[in-house]
Design a protein around this nucleic acid. Sequence first.
RNA 1: GCUGAAGUGGUGGAAUUGGUAGACACGUUGGACUUAAAAUCCAAUGUCCAUUAGGACGUACGGGUUCAAGUCCCGUCUUCAGUACCA
Length: 1013
Amino acid sequence: MTYNFNAIEKKWQDYWAKNQTFKASNTSDKPKYYVLDMFPYPSGAGLHVGHPLGYIASDIYARYKRHKGFNVLHPQGYDSFGLPAEQYAIQTGQHPAITTEANIKTYRRQLDQIGFSFDWSREVRTSNPEYYKWTQWIFIQLFESWYNNDSNKAEHIDTLVEKFAAKGNATVNAACDENIESFTSEDWNNYSSEQQQDILLKYRLTYLAETEVNWCPALGTVLANDEIVNGVSERGGHSVVRKKMTQWSMRISAYAERLLQGLDTIDWTDALKDIQKNWIGKSVGASVTFNVIPAVSSSAVETSHKIDVFTTRPDTIFGVSFMTLAPEHELVSQITTAEQKEAVEAYIDKTAKRSERDRMADVKTISGVFTGAYAEHPFSKEPIPIWIGDYVLASYGTGAVMAVPCGDQRDYDFAKHFDIAIPNIFEGADISEEAYASKDNVKITNSDFLNGMNYKKASKLAIYQLEQLGQGEGKTNYRLRDAVFSRQRYWGEPFPVYYVNGMPQMIDKAHLPIVLPEVEKYLPTEEGEPPLGRADVWAWDVNQSSVVSNQLIDHKTVFPLELNTMPGWAGSSWYFFRYMEDAANRDGVFASEDALKYWENVDLYIGGSEHATGHLLYSRFWVKLLKDRGFVNVEEPFKKLINQGMILGTSAFFYSIKIEMELQVIEKDESGKIISETKIEPVKDYIIEFNLINSPGNTTQALVYKAIDEITNNFSSGSSDSNFEIKLLNYSDGLAHGKNVDVNLINPSTNELDINSFISDIRYKDYQDAVFITNNAGIYKVTREVEKMSKSKYNVVNPDQIVEDYGADSLRLYEMFLGPLEQYKPWNTAGITGVHNFLKKLWKLYVGDDGLKVNNAQPTADNLKTLHKTIKKVEEDIENFSFNTSVSTFMIAVNELTAQKCTSKDILEPLLILISPYAPHIAEELWSQLGNANSISTVQFPIFDGSHLVESSKKYPISFNGKMRFTLELPMDMSKDDIEKTVMAHEKTIAQLDGRTPKKVIVVPGKIVNIVG
RNA sequence: GCUGAAGUGGUGGAAUUGGUAGACACGUUGGACUUAAAAUCCAAUGUCCAUUAGGACGUACGGGUUCAAGUCCCGUCUUCAGUACCA
C-alpha cells in the first residue's frame, strides 16, 4: 500500500465537512480559545502560496489547542467589499457582487483543499447586507456618542445634551472640534434645532466636516493616509492631491491616550507596538500664548492678536529669537505689515502651488519670509519677529512654532539662512556648527529664573510661570489625526444617513440594513458625485421608513440619502465579534451577550504587519467605543498577535539586446560589377545570459558583426551567381534589458529556461525570432531575483498545482519548514520533495507492502527516548510558534524510529497525535487504520515523561584552549575530580599536550571539559 | 535623518541560560538496484593544506570581555521594514 495522498486528503476533508468536526460550541465545560486569521479579500487571482502561510500556522495552533483540551473557535470569512471588484465592474459592467461571489467560490475551494480546521458555519462576508446591517448600526452608535474626558470614556450623546441644557458648554471637558464658541444653558435652549445639531456634530465621535483630504483623481476617491505610499496611491500608484471636501470623520483622536496605554496590556511584538506608538505620536510639552505687538502704522481698529504654539521644550523659552507660522495659518493675512504684504502673498502663492509631495520630498531647501510683525516674549517682553515658512505644518499642533535656534536643528538652519540671531541658553554647549538638541546633561543659562536648572526642572517652572501669566499651560499633543470615513465609491457599506436641511439624520436601527442601490454604471456622475449619485431609488421616506425613488424627494417627508460609502476598514473593525455568535442566532444582534461573554476576545491573531496603522488601530478604537457604550466587555480585540512574514517570489529574468542596423547591400556579379545597391534596416534580438553580456565575443559590436554575417549568408545562399557585400552604415546602442519571464518556464533547480516553450508562448511572441546566446552546453540560465509575489512579475506560484502533485500535507509542512514564521522568505519549489519524502517515510513506518506493520510490541528504551524527546520539543516549538523546527524534529523522529525498526503501537500512536496539527490528513488516515473509530482531532496530546530521557553517560567534548579536539564518553554521575583525572590520563590528552603542563582545567559536569595551557 | 529587525555552507535554515557551529532538508558528486528511466536505498559534501594521520581558517567587518563568543559589550558596514520637516 502506497501513500495515496490525493485520495486520503479528499476522504478526510469530506469526513470533517460531513461530521462538522471543527464546529465550535458556545457552551462547553472546556476552557475557550479563539484563534483568528486576518480574513482575506477575495481577489480574482485566487490564492498564491504566500496567502496560506499564516493560515497554516494558526491552524496548527488551533488543532494543537484542541488536543490540549480547549474549546477552540477558529473561523474564517471574507473582507468582500473593496476596490478591485469595483474596478473590474467599471471595466466590464459586471456587478461587483457577482464578481465577488465567484472569487469567493475559488477561495473556498482553494482553502478547503489545504485542510484547514475552520468552522465554516460561522463564516462572515462584509458585503453581505445581514452583516453590514451591523456595521451601519455601529456607525450610528458612533454618531450618538461623545467622548467625556472627565470620565475618560465615550457616553451617549444624551448626557451631553443634558449638560448643555443645564450648564452650557463651559464645564464640558470633551474631545471635540477646536474653537467651539462657548454658550450658556439659556443660549442652548434658545438655539434652533439646526443650530443645536450643528453644535452637536462638533462633539460626536463621527462627524461631518470640511476636511482637507487626499483626493485621487484616477481612482475618483479619497484615500486615507495609510492608503498612500510615497505620495501615490497604494493600489495602482496613482497621484494624489489635496482637496477640501465634506466628509465623515471618525474622532479616533479622542482615544489617542487609551490606544497608547492599551499597548502595554497586549502581547504583540515590540516592532508592531512601536509602529502604533509612532503613529499615535504622543509628545508632552506646553502650549504658550504669544501676544502680537500691534503695528505702529496700523489704524485704531487694530485688534490684539495672539499666537498659540505648542512646544516640547518650555525650558528653552528664553532661547526664542523668532516665531514661524505655517503659510496657511489664519493669522498671517491679519498681522502682515503693509511693507511685507507683497512678499508674503508671493510666498504663500508659491507654496500653495507646490504639492504636498514636493514639500515632503524636498526638505533641504529652506524657505520663508518675514511678516513684518513682532510678538512679545511672555517674560522678557522683548519683540520677536514673526516669519512664515513651509517647514511648519498647518496640520500639526497649532500650525505655529516658537523658534529656538540653539536647541532645534530646523530652527537653527532657518536662522542661519536668514541671518537671525541664535542666542545660546545652554551652559557650555557648542552651537557654532549645529543646534544642541539633546535634553540631557545640560543646564539652562541666560534664562532669567530658569538659570542653572536641568530640562525637567526648568520645564516645570516655565509652565508654572506661564500659568501665572495666563499665557500657557502644560499640554500633550498627538500626531494621530481623525480618520476620514467617506469614500466616493460604489462597492462599500452605504451610510444609514439622510439629510434634512443639510443636517445628517440617522435612520432608525429597526429599518437597517440600508441596502446598496442598483446603479447602471459604477463611475462618479458627470457632476462629480460618487457613484451612488447615479441610483434612481435612493431617497428616504420618513413616513414609510423605506428607501424610495429620488423623484419623490420633497424635503418634507422624503429626503436625499448619503452618497458616499464606508471605507474598507469599516467592516473589518468588528468582524471578530460576529464570529462569536452562531450563524443561526445572529438575527437580532451583532453578537449575543452570552456569546460575547463566553469568547471575550481573540486569544491569538495572525496576520501581516502591513495592517499596523490601519485595521489593527481602527479595530482597537471601535472595540474601545463598544466597550464604553456597554455593548462588549473587552477593552482590546486581540490579546496576542503574530505577524507572519511574506513569502516572496523568486522572479526570473532574461536579458535581451535589440540591435537596429542600417546596412548597405551591394550586389555584384562574377566579374565584380555592381548590379544593385539597396539600403536595409534589419532589427535583431539577442537573448543573452546575464553573465555573458559584454563578455568577449558578445559586445554590441561583436553581435552586430554576427548579425551581418548571418545576413550575408542569407543573401549568398539565395543566389548562386551574385556576390554580396554588406556595408555597415549605422547601428543602435544595443543595451541589455532585463525582463520578467514566467517562473513556470524555468526548471526550479537548475534555472534553465525551457527555450521551446518560451518561443511558442504567446506572451513572448516578440522574441520568436530572437537568437539565444547560451553557455557552452547550449543551456540558457535565467537570472533570479527575490521580489514580492505578484501577477505582474510572473513569479506567482499557485498552491493548487502543489496540492495536486504533492498533497496538502506536503504543502502545509513545506510552508512551515521554509523558516521562521515572522521572517520574509523566498518561495522555492525545489525543496518541497524533502518534506514529501518525509511523509512517504512516515507512511512506511506504519504501512508495509502487506498492510499495517504496527503491532503491540513492547517499546524499547530507544523508542521511548525518541518519542519523548519529540513530544518535548514539539510542544515547546508550538508554544513558541517555532513551527519550522518541529518539522525537523518530526523528520529526526521518523529517521530514528525507522532505523530502530519500531513497530510498537505505544510509540507510533502518540507520534500521530504530535504530527496531526501539521499534517492532519495523513494523521487521520493512519489513526483510523490503527483501529480508532473517531477523528484524531480532539484526542489528548501525549504527555511528556522526562524519565525516558535520563542518560547514564555523556559524551564529553574535550577542548584545548576552547577548541574541541575529541569526545570522551563518561558516566553522568562521575564527580568533577574524577572527570578531570580520567581526562588528564587519557592518551589523546597526553598527545595533545605534547609534554606541556596545563595552567587550568575547567570541568563543567554534564557539559564540557576545557584544558587551558 | 530617526525607529525597528536582520546579516551563519552552493541554497532554505538549526544551535535552551555563553559550552562539540552548520541539526534537518534541498542541491551536487559517487555508488547500489534496473535493459533503461522513474522511484527507492547507501555514501560523501563549510573552505583551504595534507597520500594518510592530522592541521589551519571559519557565523558581515574591526576591536574587547571570558577557560570558552554565532550568542555578551563597543565601533563600522550592508540589507530589509516603518516613518518622514511632528515643533
